[in-house]
């Protein structure tokens, strides 16, 4: 059986998490949503979502291939073991984050204050 404490704990965590959504979104807003910022160990590259392009970023354990096509950006190839970044799929101008942790590479599309919930769950 669940105790009253269990239910209160679940409720408190849920409320804090829901309240944190707008706070975190506000903290990271102010970026241009037509651009993707690719950050790797070697530095940052800004990609315009309107211009189809493929770049190779040097990661911690190999290369990460980031592709912009039809207004979306995605990691098409990575040398990491789990490929979470590749499976994360594409980001469009609604914003979001794709991270390849083993390679230390992140792809961020800005204006995170504007995006909906379904844009985060990518």
């Amino acid at each position: 059986m669940t105790t009253r404490g269990d239910r209160i704990l679940v409720l408190v965590i849920a409320i804090v998490a829901v309240l944190a959504i707008p706070v975190l979104a506000a903290a990271s807003s102010g970026q241009d949503s037509s651009q993707a910022v690719v950050t790797g160990p070697a530095g940052r590259t800004v990609l315009d979502l309107g211009v189809d392009r493929t770049i190779v970023v040097q990661g911690l354990c190999g290369d990460v291939v980031v592709e912009v096509s039809n207004g979306t950006v995605r990691v098409v190839e990575s040398t990491c073991p789990d490929k979470v970044c590749v499976r994360s799929g594409a980001l469009d101008s609604h914003g979001g984050v794709v991270a390849c942790v083993p390679n230390g590479v992140t792809v961020v599309v800005g204006a995170e204050g504007e995006r909906g919930l379904d844009a985060i769950v990518r």
Partner: peptide, 20 residues
């Protein structure tokens, strides 16, 4: 910390809700 990108933290609330 590992990626040096604070933007990842924006994924936390949804992940915490799922973790419940």
């Amino acid at each position: 910390l590992v990626t040096g990108s604070a933007a990842i933290v924006s994924l936390v609330p949804v992940s915490v809700l799922a973790s419940l």
